[in-house]
Design a protein around this nucleic acid. Structure first.
Length: 1029
RNA sequence: GGGCGCUUAGCUCAGCUGGCUAGAGCACUGCCCUUACAUGGCAGGUGUCACAGGUUCGAAUCCUGUAGCGCUCACCA
């Protein structure tokens, strides 16, 4: 009896905590700051701290873990940097919503007190997220865990800002920004979501100043007319000449504004506009120009030197305190109205005055804040910008692209190759286009946010009367400055400080009446520095991070979602290259597929339809989840994952009831009724997320599950039981033989399984190099379940107990299996490793499996394929085909598996049986194999064709059913006859013979002859059957 | 409107550098609780590869167009 036994089945919850503790105790995921081993680094896309992770994150993190674990096993100095992101606007919004439920507002707190509240939230969710990562088995370098507002990251942000400021890449600008009137902050272009809304075109009449008539402007936003500073007309419009030099009197406001001519103005169809152009069909030919409230008008206004009259307050209400000075008595009525009310009232005013020419319904897209979901207002305000359009940033990002993935030629500086140029590759390659096009159309990046949660902008400012040149006071002492003239003639001086001067110059600035900018930086500013800041840039020694930066930057790959290409990848590339002399933050960008819920909606933190990976771990185990997520990661398709709910009362899985949100999303209803007991109810994760319900003892939270993960759970169980079986076959200790020389596999089965193992490793490695994960999962499943369990283990059952060489092969292949399975299913393999490594055996030639305390740090196998691999595999496949043929007959005749039968076959088939060395007999359930003797045909035999030969099996049952037998043979004849016709058709085709590749034709000939022989064999068998009385 | 994908068995998805009569898992049917595993084994049925053209000896695979779905960028005259 073997000393090493395993319990009957694998229960993940029994093993996972134990394994986690062992890894933690060993500290095996902690990378060396410097090492002889090649570095391999991945930076986790830091999840934001607004909420817990869902299966989309689990997928991304599983794939990164697979990569990191393989690299570690290959002996590389592997570092996976974990961390979280402060996500300024998102986190602040979440906390503000929470406060609002308690009837409090942000402004009820001091800034510091509010930030402390957000900090509490962050601490809570950061802990949850890090725990989730651990439970999934993510082999992160936990000791290096970072948060984007850690001191080391803050230092990097300060340095980056200061350098960009110094280098003229940061500027202050009064421009139109995307303004969120609810959050009252500016948004970057990519934080604005376009939504289709039903609106109207209103046609407003503006009287000419000289009383000679009017012009009609078309607008979707009539309330902005209060800020109009001109009317535009296309110079090619036939009416333009007559209006040249004229002015209009703006209704309500009584402002006299010019008519300007500009090509930008779309002409009405009836006046020469393009009938194909939707705008032209709605246009009147006259454009109201509102520079302070429309981006295009802003540009037009600059071309014509028009004033920008801002008529709104930051909350979106009409206001005379932000740049509107000529408020007429009539206009006074509108001040203070919300923008929605103002729209209604302006239209009503025009209607009452007879100036509303018409109204047409119009469906169009309007920008909405991705956080507050209200319509974004183009709003004139002072903001900080990074001049990403500068060649040092944008150009550098484009030059980073692999030329083979660049559509057109990247703008390489002639004859001047720079570090990192051309070194960035995308997987799948098509995403390179997204990256390229984004940069080609990029605009300056607005980085200031009117929030409290984030990195405060390190700029102090003060206005002066007249031209007092104070800049040197500060520049001489290490600060950077910038100044501009305000509209009222005063001078505004901006002083940017490096962090090191906060304590000295900062204090002096404050004393001198300077005020630090209250705003914070866009979150992506700190995220952009992530691969540098987490390694201590610009001063690793200061944080005890010596050598980290040079060891792990550039990293190997960034694994992330599609939309992140523009938000984050771009900015990391630009910053890393700018600050580190062209160095790339990573060599590869892998874009993973999107996990959708059962309704095709992306799982998202903000929608609240995400499934907590811990739910799946609870029902299926972490390995099962990881395997299935790996398998789901295909290159082209996103993954739809129908989700069930687990009743907390009965533990029965059921499909939850759903509701549709006002935005049209399908989500689970906040409460559900137990499928087994209608009197019992429960709350759902969505209900809790949306703040609609709270879990109680009577109404507990229902967890999620999904049968999609069954495959993974079954696979873990299969591996467990296969290992259990293997251990039972091996002698308790073969240590005496362990010192001997290596043995060479002899039997076909042994040689075959080693060959298949080598092929599987090669396949996995090729897939990994291309970041193709689904093929890895498929290859593992196919090899372990089909090849190893179904064929190899079954084949060796009769011989393994008495064959030491076979025992060595079995032990070694199982060892190899645990190694290659480990990156995808780390827990069950590590648990099995403890048992398997105790069994010593002689080494097997071609597959070296050196021992290791932990599987996590064991060596990745490097099998050396035997010289006759191809022959071995072909031989075994012949055996498999023969076994399958015989099993077919058994299956059709419903022969009990225990019943042993006799095969009668001609010499060429006998050769296969012999080649198999007994495994055909084992696997097909044969008690005897006889050579065909035409003179002596077994009376109870059933005939079937195989490889063109007629085979007979006898002893299937007590009596042969002639009718059923005839039917089966007739069906075979039809099938084979159809095949023969097909192949003959091809071979009778002159074009085919003339143009197809010779080996393809040869293959077809072979198939034809075999199909034909099968046909003849079946026909003969049918004849014989007919002669039986 | 631009760009990128997708549409293959009841479900979820592979296959797509053109070439064995299109695959897997789940579900379904039959037989098996055979001492690794019933979270299992053996066998089985299942598809005008969205539609319409084209290229080719040959198309699920390449090209064009159409429809539907998804993502993404731009756009509030």
């Amino acid at each position: 009896m073997n000393a090493i036994t395993l319990e009957k089945s694998y229960l993940p919850c029994d093993h996972e905590p134990v394994i986690l503790a062992r890894w933690k105790a060993a500290g095996c995921f902690h990378a060396q700051a410097s090492s002889d081993r090649a570095p391999y680094a991945i930076f986790i896309p830091p999840p934001n701290v607004t909420a817990a992770l869902h299966l989309g994150h689990a997928l991304n993190n599983t794939l990164q873990d697979v990569l990191v674990r393989v690299a570690r096993m290959r002996g590389m100095n592997a570092m996976w940097m974990p961390g979280t992101d402060h996500a300024g606007i998102a986190t602040q919004t979440v906390v503000e919503k929470r406060l609002l439920m308690q009837g409090k507002r942000r402004t009820d707190f001091t800034r510091d007190a509010f930030v402390a509240r957000v900090q509490e939230w962050k601490d809570e969710y950061e802990a949850v997220i890090l725990a989730q990562l651990r439970e999934m088995g993510a082999s992160c370098d936990e000791a290096r865990t970072r948060f984007t507002m850690d001191p080391v990251c803050t230092a990097a942000v300060r340095e980056a800002f200061f350098r960009l400021f110094h280098d003229g890449l940061i500027e202050r600008g009064k421009r139109l920004v995307n303004w969120d009137p609810v959050s009252q902050t500016a948004l970057a272009d990519d934080e604005v979501e376009m939504e289709e809304v039903d609106g109207f075109f209103w046609y407003l009449r503006y009287p000419l100043e000289d009383g000679s008539g009017h012009v009609t402007v078309a607008t979707t936003r009539p309330e902005t007319m209060l800020g109009d500073s001109a009317v535009g007309v296309n110079p090619r419009d036939p009416r333009a000449a007559a209006l040249r030099g004229k002015r209009v009197r703006l209704p309500i406001v009584d402002r006299v504004i010019p008519i300007v001519e500009d090509d930008y103005v779309v002409m009405a169809v009836e006046h020469g506009g393009d009938p194909q152009d939707v705008k032209a069909r709605f246009a009147s030919g006259f454009l109201k120009v509102t520079p302070a409230h429309d981006a295009n008008d802003w540009e037009l206004g600059r071309r014509h030197n028009l004033p920008a009259i801002n008529i709104m307050a930051p909350d979106g209400s009409i206001s005379d305190r932000h740049g509107w000075s000529d408020v007429s008595p009539a206009a006074r009525e509108f001040v203070g109205l919300s923008r929605e009310d103002a729209r209604t009232r302006v239209v009503a005013w025009f209607k009452k005055e007879g100036l509303l020419e018409s109204v047409k319904p119009y469906r169009h897209s309007v920008g909405h804040s991705y956080r507050s979901h209200v319509a974004v207002e183009p709003y004139l305000s002072d903001q900080w910008y990074v001049r990403v359009t500068d060649d040092r940033l944008r150009g550098s990002a484009l030059r980073a692209m692999d030329p083979a993935q660049h559509d057109g030629s990247p703008a390489f500086a002639a004859g001047d190759a720079h570090l990192g140029d051309g070194g960035l590759q995308f997987f799948p390659a098509r995403y390179a286009k997204t990256f390229q096009q984004w940069h080609e159309g990029i605009r300056d990046w607005c980085i200031s946010r009117q929030l409290w949660w984030g990195h405060r902008i390190p700029v102090w400012s003060k206005s002066f009367d007249g031209d007092q040149d104070l800049q040197e006071t500060w520049t001489q002492r290490g600060a950077c400055t910038m100044q501009r003239t305000l509209p009222d003639g005063r001078i505004e001086l901006f002083v940017c400080l490096p962090e090191s001067l906060d304590g000295s110059l900062g204090v002096e600035l404050t004393a001198a009446g300077f005020v630090q900018d209250p705003d914070v930086l866009d979150t992506w500013f700190s995220s952009a520095l992530w691969p540098m800041s987490t390694l201590g840039w610009p001063n690793p020694e200061r944080f005890g991070m010596d050598r980290l930066l040079d060891t792990f930057n550039p990293s190997a790959v960034l694994s992330t979602a599609r939309e992140i290409i523009t938000l984050w990848v771009s900015r990391m590339v630009m910053f890393n290259r700018y600050f580190l002399k062209g160095r790339l933050p990573f060599h590869s960008v892998f874009i993973h597929s999107v996990v959708q819920d059962g309704f095709g909606q992306k799982m998202s933190k903000s929608l609240g339809n995400g499934v907590d990976p811990r739910d799946i771990i609870a029902t299926h185990g972490a390995d099962a989840m990881r395997f299935v997520l790996t398998q789901m990661s295909t290159a082209t398709q996103d993954v739809r994952l129908p989700i069930d709910m687990l009743c907390p009362h009965s533990h029965v899985a059921f499909a939850p009831k759903t509701i549709t949100t006002s935005a049209g999303h399908i989500v689970t209803a906040p409460t559900q009724t137990s499928p087994t007991d209608p009197s019992k109810e429960m709350v759902t994760a969505y209900g809790v997320f949306a703040g609609l319900v709270t879990a109680t003892a009577e109404m507990p939270l229902a967890r999620n599950t999904s049968s999609r993960f069954d495959i993974g759970r079954n696979f873990a169980t299969k591996l467990w039981n296969a290992s259990r079986f293997v251990l039972a076959q091996l002698p308790p200790s073969a240590e005496e033989s362990a010192s001997g020389a290596s043995v060479t596999a002899q039997s076909l089965a042994d040689r075959w399984i080693l060959a298949r193992f080598a092929a599987t490793v090669a396949h996995i490695e090729e897939s990994l190099a291309q970041y193709q994960f689904n093929p890895i999962a498929e290859a593992l499943y196919e090899f372990v379940w089909r090849d190893f369990c179904d064929w190899y283990l079954e084949a060796i059952k009769p011989t393994v107990k008495s064959d030491p060489v076979q025992q060595a092969v079995l032990r070694t292949v199982l060892d190899g299996i645990l190694r290659i399975m480990h990156p995808v299913m780390p827990f069950v393999t590590e648990a099995l490793w403890t048992a398997v490594r105790q069994v010593k055996c002689v080494p097997v030639r071609g597959l070296d499996v050196p021992d290791s305390q932990l599987l996590a740090t064991a060596r990745w196998p490097e099998p050396i394929a035997a010289h006759d691999t191809a022959n071995t595999i072909e031989s075994f496949e012949r055996v498999q085909a023969l076994v399958t043929s015989i099993r077919n007959v058994r299956g059709e005749r419903k022969v009990n598996d225990k019943r042993k039968i006799t095969l009668t076959a001609p010499a060429e088939i006998m050769a296969i049986v012999v080649e198999g060395g007994g495994i055909v007999e084992t696997l097909a359930g044969l008690k005897d194999v006889r050579l065909t003797d035409p003179a002596n045909r077994p009376s109870d035999s059933v005939a079937f064709p195989h490889l063109g030969c007629e085979l007979l099996v006898s002893g299937l049952m007590d009596a042969v059913d002639i009718g059923a037998e005839r039917k089966r043979l007739e069906q075979t004849i039809i099938d084979r006859g159809r095949a023969v016709t097909g192949y003959e058709g091809k071979l009778n085709n002159g074009g085919y013979l003339a143009k197809a590749k010779p080996e393809v034709i040869e293959e077809t000939r072979r198939m034809l002859s075999q199909a034909h022989a099968d046909l003849v064999a079946a026909q003969r068998a049918l004849e014989v059957l007919s002669t039986v009385p």
